[in-house]
Amino acid sequence: MTGAPAADEREAVLEVQGVDVHLGNRQVLSDVSFTVGANDFTGLIGANGAGKTTLMRVILGLQPPSSGRVRISGREGRHRSTIGYVPQKFVFDPDMPLRARDLVALGIDAQRWGIALPSRSRRERVEAMLAAVNGLQFADTRIGRLSGGEQQRVLIAHALISEPTLLLLDEPLANLDPASTQEVVSLLAKIAAEQNIAVLISAHEMNPLLPVLDRIIYVAAGRAASGRTDEVVRADVLSKLYGDHVDVLHVHGRVLVVTGAGEGLDLHGHEGAITDGEVLR
């Protein structure tokens, strides 16, 4: 996995400039700008419905922005071969004749014509990738019969095997229990470091990611603020973003973002934490 150019560490893998998105009559994103540098581990944080998935789709070229531009590795347009993507929702039929290793192999050459000829190097490459996500033990199981966490690891392998420079993950932690969450986060951190790639991971809950994040893009009310975690997760920055008073509390090493404080506090949320811009009533 030495294919990734290790040229300038400051080189931007992804530049998003002034992106506006309208869906129907609704403005979902307005003037969103940020950059993701090579090898950055970036969190895309925001409440459900804040526009994270839309932003991912814009980056992937699946959703044309109303204005603004997206450059990938300095080039505009559709260069999606350099992006690996793990979608938020995936449902595979349990009886589909497609093993974990077949799905990973499709990550190499799904765009090619015809049936892949058996090849030892291809097979070894797939197995190495599955090993990297701790997935060798279920390589020969039908993808639809794996658990959600296992399927996710296979999808990560599928995304990584084409040696992208940027890995996009849409809410990979949303449906995982705390133990699996830890496992996936440390796995991603390990892979990002080993394979020299930039990771952009979206989440509505930032705490499990805080130990590994280099930078953060915080999305709220269709706008985004980006920077190092300590530059963004601050009461003044987030208050400006939300256009409302926001408190940022540090409790037992966890970060709680409390919004709508003027309307009275009611502490609920994930494990007693109020996070992610949920407006409380």
Binding site: P87, K89, M96, G114, H158
Partner: peptide, 23 residues
């Protein structure tokens, strides 16, 4: 069908994954 085999297999397994790859 044989010519389309790989793109067809991926887009049948998950249209979203296929679209994200630009298929």
């Amino acid at each position: 069908v044989l010519a389309l085999y790989r793109p067809l297999l991926l887009s049948s397994a998950s249209a979203e994954l296929a679209a994200a790859r630009g298929l």
